[in-house]
Write a protein that binds this DNA or RNA. Structure first.
Lengths: 336, 336
DNA sequence: TTGAAAGCGCTAACAC
DNA sequence: GTGTTAGCGCTTTCAA
């Protein structure tokens, strides 16, 4: 299996120039006489020389790879961000080391450390919660970190998001306007700040505006999965809620399917609104009214910010808030 | 932003041992006196020393990273494989450089080359088609390549798959047994061998067994997307087909939703069977009968094979065929 | 415009 | 059990 490898030194010898010159032509340095460049290029071609990025990384202290920490590639929401990240990374000649963290703090720290060991030039972090431990690691890291679709309540780390609180507030306000008094909130764990500090906040703001008392019995912590949604359905049915805002599309799909199966009509008996506008929202019947987010762009913008940081440029704004929307589909009754 | 970096040399000096000894304890080499090890470990702790994986890679010629080429992370099917790959990689202390190829030959070749430049120890390739150009690159690569969920008709590259032809044959045979004579085949491009040489083959075998003449007007090349499925629906409706086998779950979902909306009942007027048993198949109404594949395991097994190859071990079998199943859901009529 | 030479931080013989 | 010494393949001053 061992194939001999041709190095910059071989090229230099064959072309009768120095390694430095070869390095210059490989790196597009303009200070090379066209004739020399041509000669070197010919030898490179003939020898099929491929620069060794690892050696280059060691010498230059830049690996041209960035780490991406994702809860789970299999999660449609985060996968969409990842695609935006990779496209922009590629555009800037970076590669992505992708690692799943399962949203587990310990794993996130481990992964971050192995990424640093691999000398990534930067890191994009996606997750549902950032605790002090993680924040400390970000600070300690010698490469910049940008959050994508991930909130840091302390606002210490640059990030790209939508205004989750405002979006939820708008959704719930719409629901209230249509007469709902008991609106359930189906979220992931409240230990995650996106839920506890943003979605819940938006929800409460809407209630307050409408002078509806907050009832924490209507707030449910479940998992972000289809089955979690199904399991939650009877619980929500018992609560007497007539509408529900859900934090994850798959969960919303499970909730809707289970409702319809048990004779609870969506939207007549229960209106459902979800969060991420993934393809799931179009596939269910009824289709799901959802907050819309520029998923791809969240990733893309985060990666753009990271490239700036990696080149020691200043960020125009540390916290980028992209616009959200709300798209009405069959899971809610038509506008009033 | 520059943080000074502590090297193996610093540790050696502080611990009053040689670099070699530090290297040994870092790498768990047993040939170190416990007392020495302890002393070194203490210094490592105190200095917060982190080995530089790039330097290690250059010196040892092993980067402990593998390249993963995926058509699109956003594709639920491939994402599921990717998760299996990453989990096993992590288990073996490898990291994954993930790159999207959009199934485009040229991009696949580029990406493969940059992965090789980064000195990956191996590559997992996922895609819908392998042409001669790509095969040549695989051969030329100095790191082993394993295909996951991807067929090489020439069988030159190690791979992990299910028996697509047999699965489709079984599906179509079942359909025929229930009285269908006109069964459509909704696939991706026939230039992709998984379609042209496997699914189509299985389809034809089933027809032949039942002495039903093959009609290529019933074979449709569409895209692997929800919208492609929707667009295909009227075409299939016009064909007079009473059943259809679909090559992608999202496409099947689009086909089903569009059918129901235009008054064609699934499964009464049109039975639908799909290929990948992703979560999509449970979300639609009716839910979709599907071939089941051990998605995660396809990735996991491929990665296991790759670890063997990377350690110059022999493969028990070059082509691994994992078992498939068929799960009946609402998009087909109940068993006869 | 080009070359010489000194590393980058680590591993891997080899010697002791 | 431990140290010495070459590199790994490249970038990057510094001189020329």
């Amino acid at each position: 299996m061992e194939k001999q490898t041709v190095t910059i030194y071989d090229v230099a010898r064959e072309a009768a120039v120095s390694m430095a010159t070869v390095s210059r032509v490989v790196n597009g340095n303009p200070n090379v006489k066209p004739a020399t460049r041509k000669k070197v290029l010919a030898v490179i071609e003939r020898l099929d020389y491929r620069p060794n990025a690892v050696a280059r990384g060691l010498a230059s202290k830049r690996s041209t790879t960035v780490g991406v920490i994702i809860p789970d590639v299999t999660n449609i929401y985060f996968a969409a961000l990842a695609r935006g990240i990779d496209d922009i990374a590629m555009m800037y000649k970076y590669n992505i080391i992708l690692t799943n963290s399962d949203d587990a703090g310990e794993q996130e720290v481990n992964v971050l450390n192995t990424l640093m060991a691999k000398q990534v030039d930067g890191v994009i972090f996606m997750g549902n919660h950032i605790d002090d431990k993680l924040r400390a690691e970000f600070k300690r890291a010698k490469a910049p970190v940008v959050l994508a679709g991930t909130v840091d309540p302390n606002n210490e780390t640059p990030s790209v998001n939508i205004d989750y609180a405002a979006a939820v507030e708008e959704v719930v306000t719409n629901l209230i306007a249509r007469g709902h008094k008991k609106i359930a909130l189906a979220l992931g764990s409240l230990s995650q700040s996106i839920n506890a500090e943003y979605r819940l906040t938006g929800y409460k703001r809407a209630l307050t505006k409408a002078k509806i008392p907050f009832d924490d019995a209507l707030v449910y912590e479940a998992g972000y999965s289809y089955d979690a949604g199904r399991k939650l359905q009877p619980v929500i049915a018992d609560s007497g809620a007539t509408a529900v805002f859900v934090g994850d599309d798959e969960m919303a799909a499970g909730l809707i399917n289970a409702s319809m199966e048990s004779g609870i009509n969506v939207p007549d008996d229960l209106e459902v609104v979800t969060s991420n506008d993934t393809i799931i929202t179009q596939i269910t019947r009824p289709a799901i009214t959802s907050i819309t987010q520029p998923l791809y762009d969240i990733g893309a913008v985060a990666m753009r910010m990271l490239t700036k940081l990696m080149n020691d440029k200043e960020l125009d704004e540390k916290t980028v808030t992209l616009p959200y929307g709300i798209v009405r589909r069959g899971s809610t009754k038509s506008a009033d």
